[in-house]
Amino acid sequence: MSSQSTLDGASIRTADASVLASGASRALTSEQPSAERDGPAWFNPRVLARRWTAIVVFLALWEVAPRLGLINAAYLSPFSEVALRLASGLLSGELVHHLLVSLSRSFSGFVLALGVGLPLGVALGWFHKFERFADPLVQLIRQVPAVALLPLFIMLLGVGELSKVVIIFYGAQWAIQLNTVSGVKNVDPLLIKLARSLGLSRLDLFRKIILPAALPTIFTGLRLSATRSILIIVAAEMMGGKSGIGYVLKNSEYNYDIVTMYAAIMLLALVGLSTNYLLIGLESRFSSWKPETTRY
């Protein structure tokens, strides 16, 4: 219910930003982002140039360096060849197949991480006694990197789907859990004081104040863990299995198929980028009442 009112607030604000009473308009207009006044960013040539220059220069160097012999072409294929290989791989469906395999593994692990990390984070943030009891153990286990546990999981669970999904679950749930804890714990104390003064029950305090206030922080955790689950699946697929982008990467490296290797790397970068932006879009809808959202 409260997330509903958040969405309403966001849409109303942009809809009638122009019909302000004159007295308040000064305070209000200064808070409007400058891009809105100059028209949409993607349409403005100066903004476009500013955002794309670095990438264009990078791609040009990539193209030219192996062709001029600045870098041995056996180790670095020119950008155009890699781009063509990526396009043909996607069109033939071969890379699409591997990509879908990787994504579905990541997604399963991520959903599992969400199902465990979110309730665990809420419990740790809300019940102080439970936190005091569990925190030392949590901090200890947290120090073990997911990749270090990979051989163990393969040994215990085999090289099949299960070990891959479990390793993603393990690696992805930390960001969700820790962000949920900090979101729940760092609610403005004045709002809690307000809720107490209005005689809200503990359950209502949680439903109406704590959870909506923690939502933006929790969503940051979801975003970090989604991108992390894609990183981890690549490592897991490189260590065992016959499908997925990680397998393509490893396999092409074995066969000295350098062009395909770079195409797989490029695909990973594009997938990561689009996942991140998709989630930032979602995140800003949930946290429109907060002044800023970070984009790392």
């Binding site: 309403d8 709002l191 307000l194």
Partner: peptide, 19 residues
């Protein structure tokens, strides 16, 4: 606490995601 007393805090204590 009780609703027979209405409090106005110095820091407003408005709920930022509500209208």
């Amino acid at each position: 606490p009780g609703l027979d007393r209405g409090i106005v805090f110095q820091g407003y204590a408005l709920i930022p995601w509500k209208t």
